[in-house]
Amino acid sequence: MDIINSIVLGVIQGLTEFLPVSSSGHLELGKAILGDESEPKKSLLFTVVLHFATALSTIVVFRKDIVDIIKGILKFEWNEDLQFAAKIALSMIPAVIIGLFFEAQLEQLFGGNILLVGCMLIITAALLFLADKAKDTNKKVSFKNALVIGISQAIAMLPGISRSGATISTSVLLGNDKTKAARFSFLMVVPLIFGKIAKDVLSGDITYDSANFTSLSIGFIAAFVSGLFACTWMIALVKKSKLSYFAIYCLVVGVIAIVFALLNK
């Protein structure tokens, strides 16, 4: 993968990670358009590195929240911060199970399967349309909600299902406040990404191959910088946004992807 492609894909990841339009789906579409023919394993590796970059941008944007949560945990009291951390841990369980037991099957889906991406984008659009009709409330995410949202996050590991779209939509449909739903959605993925990176490093799946290091590094930087912008923008937007706008976008891109895949069979 050349430097220009790495920058383009990094920017795509950074911008789409926080918008409910499926960053993984857009990465697969971007790779197909740019003619990237990486093996599924290498393709997934690049995707994981870019997700790692946006996880770091999430930490930077939510640094105050994260520090407060850590301080609350260190008090060793069943306070609001410790409860929030427990909800995050609970939400991780479904995705951890999928990652541990179905990783090989998941990897095979990341290799230019544009038809699948298109179909999943249409499902994302349907979720966003439904969530847009839900009434806004001041309700916080409960433990039961956290587990259900975690299941939606696990399903969103499929390319084309927006992780933020699925988790925010699920949370809103459960009756939670949209701003609180977005905060929970953005923070719940951070431990998973760090866990994934640690697992790959320990297993030897990620190596410092000089042939790939430059493109991975440049993609990482592009995703991190654009992720900072997108995360900050999305926090302000989600308070007054209309999810139907993103739903229409996902629907249009999904249909285009399906047509593209069928014409190139």
Rank of each mutant, 00 (worst) to 15 (best):
F213W: 06
F224P: 00
S210M: 15
S217E: 03
S226A: 09
S226N: 05
W233P: 01
F220V: 05
S226E: 08
I218D: 04
S210A: 15
A230F: 03
W233Q: 09
I218P: 07
W233M: 13
L228V: 01
G227E: 08
G219L: 05
T214L: 10
A211K: 14
A211R: 07
L228A: 02
A230R: 01
L216M: 12
A236G: 15
A211I: 09
F220M: 09
K239G: 12
F229N: 07
I221A: 11
I235D: 08
G219M: 02
C231F: 11
S215D: 04
I218F: 05
W233F: 15
S215P: 11
K239L: 09
S217I: 13
D209G: 07
G227Y: 01
V225D: 04
I235A: 06
A222V: 04
G227Q: 03
V225C: 04
N212W: 04
F213C: 02
F229Q: 05
S215H: 05
S226T: 10
A223R: 02
I221N: 01
S215T: 14
S226C: 03
A236C: 10
D209F: 06
L228S: 03
V225S: 06
L228E: 03
I221E: 01
A236D: 13
I218V: 14
S226V: 02
W233K: 10
I218Q: 02
S215A: 14
T214S: 14
K239M: 09
G227T: 07
Y208L: 14
L237C: 12
T232Y: 03
F213L: 15
L216N: 12
L228H: 00
S215F: 07
A223T: 00
S210R: 12
F224N: 02
T232N: 04
K239N: 12
L216I: 14
S210Q: 15
V238S: 09
A223C: 04
A223M: 00
N212L: 13
A236K: 13
F229S: 11
I235Q: 08
A223F: 00
F213E: 08
T214G: 08
M234S: 11
S215G: 06
S226P: 06
L228R: 00
S217A: 13
A211D: 14
A236T: 10
F229G: 06
D209Y: 02
F224Y: 07
S210C: 13
G227C: 08
L216T: 14
S226L: 01
S210W: 10
V238A: 10
C231P: 09
L216Q: 13
I218W: 00
I221R: 00
F224L: 14
L237V: 12
W233T: 10
L216F: 15
S210G: 13
G227I: 04
F229R: 01
T232I: 02
I235H: 00
V238P: 11
F213N: 09
G219E: 00
A222S: 08
T214R: 11
V225H: 02
A230S: 11
G227A: 05
T232E: 02
D209P: 03
G227K: 04
F213K: 03
L237Q: 14
F220R: 05
K239W: 06
I221Q: 06
V238I: 15
L216H: 11
L216G: 07
Y208R: 15
V225E: 06
A211Y: 09
V238W: 05
F224I: 08
S215N: 10
A230W: 01
F220Q: 08
T232R: 05
